[in-house]
């Protein structure tokens, strides 16, 4: 067992874990933050995407020990004081989700994308979420949701 300390959504957690534990299992099973989902075991689907030290990362492809000392943000930590993040809001406004399973990871990727590229083209959005699979929406409304958020974050409506 190894002791790690991870700051998740602004709260510090110190836990003894098996070194083999994946970060996504640490988040879901040890901390009980089940908003981050698992959709595959080959690092393709992106359902498990979180922000680790501010960058989008597939939490199924990190060991929890690798996150020792890191700041992690999950979908549960995105809204502040009850206000949805503009990307969350965009997904709601534009019907960017159906079953919702890919949504937390998709939203985290969208947040990461807009942080690096506040005014992306449609093509840049599509490439920006190439590491996230959605089986319901055909991506159409996800692109619109991220466009909505980009506009809102730049002071638009």
């Amino acid at each position: 067992m190894t002791e790690i300390t991870v700051n998740v959504n602004g709260k510090s957690y110190t836990r003894e874990i098996e070194p083999r534990m994946l970060l996504v299992h640490f988040i879901r099973d040890v901390l009980g933050l089940t908003g981050t989902n698992i959709g595959c075991e080959t690092s393709v689907c992106g359902a498990c995407t979180i922000l680790m030290d501010g960058q989008a990362v597939k939490s199924c492809t990190q060991l929890a020990v690798q996150a020792d000392g890191s700041d992690v943000t999950t979908i549960e930590g995105l809204a502040s004081n009850g206000d949805l993040h503009p990307v969350q809001e965009g997904f709601w406004e534009k019907h960017g989700l159906q079953c919702g399973y890919c949504t937390p990871g998709m939203i985290m990727s969208g947040v990461d994308l807009l942080k690096n590229n506040p005014n992306p083209t449609e093509d840049e959005i599509r490439h920006g979420i190439e590491g996230n699979l959605c089986r319901c929406t055909g991506y159409h409304n996800i692109v619109k949701a991220i466009q909505y958020a980009a506009e809102k974050m730049q002071g638009g409506n």
Partner: peptide
């Protein structure tokens, strides 16, 4: 390489 998440790690 990979996708943006993969390129971060």
């Amino acid at each position: 390489v990979g996708d943006r998440q993969v390129r971060h790690k």
